[in-house]
């Protein structure tokens, strides 16, 4: 068990169906796998236009694991929790 908090950032595009779905899926994932050990930031690219470009976010929704080096990105509605787990594993965060 890693003592550090896992820092996550979810880029969404307003209330588009995919973005809504991603929020819901990520919430469920965190409640199951990252209880009490994560920090989640949600960025709406429609409101922060420049930031999305600067961060190289082309596709939304996109989950970026900020704790990983290099940054690891999972795009999509995060409908498959296994992919997110794999991403965390690749980032060296064992769950």
């Amino acid at each position: 068990m890693n003592h550090d908090f896992v820092r996550l950032r979810l880029y969404v595009a307003g209330d588009s169906p995919n973005s809504q779905q991603a929020r819901k899926n990520l919430q469920a994932f965190c409640e199951k796998h990252l209880v009490g050990c994560h920090v989640l930031e949600i960025v709406d690219v429609l409101l922060s236009l420049e930031q999305a470009l600067e961060d190289g976010i082309l596709m939304t929704p996109a989950l970026v694991i900020l704790s990983a080096s290099p940054l690891r990105t999972v795009i999509g509605t995060l409908s498959d929790p296994q992919v997110v787990l794999n991403a965390l594993q690749l980032a060296g965060i064992e769950r």
Binding site: N25, V45, A52, T60, P70, T73, V74, S79, V83
Partner: peptide, 13 residues
């Protein structure tokens, strides 16, 4: 390194 899970779109870009 990009991983894909589920549907996404290009509205961010």
């Amino acid at each position: 390194e990009l991983l894909v899970s589920g549907d996404f779109d290009l509205s961010g870009m």
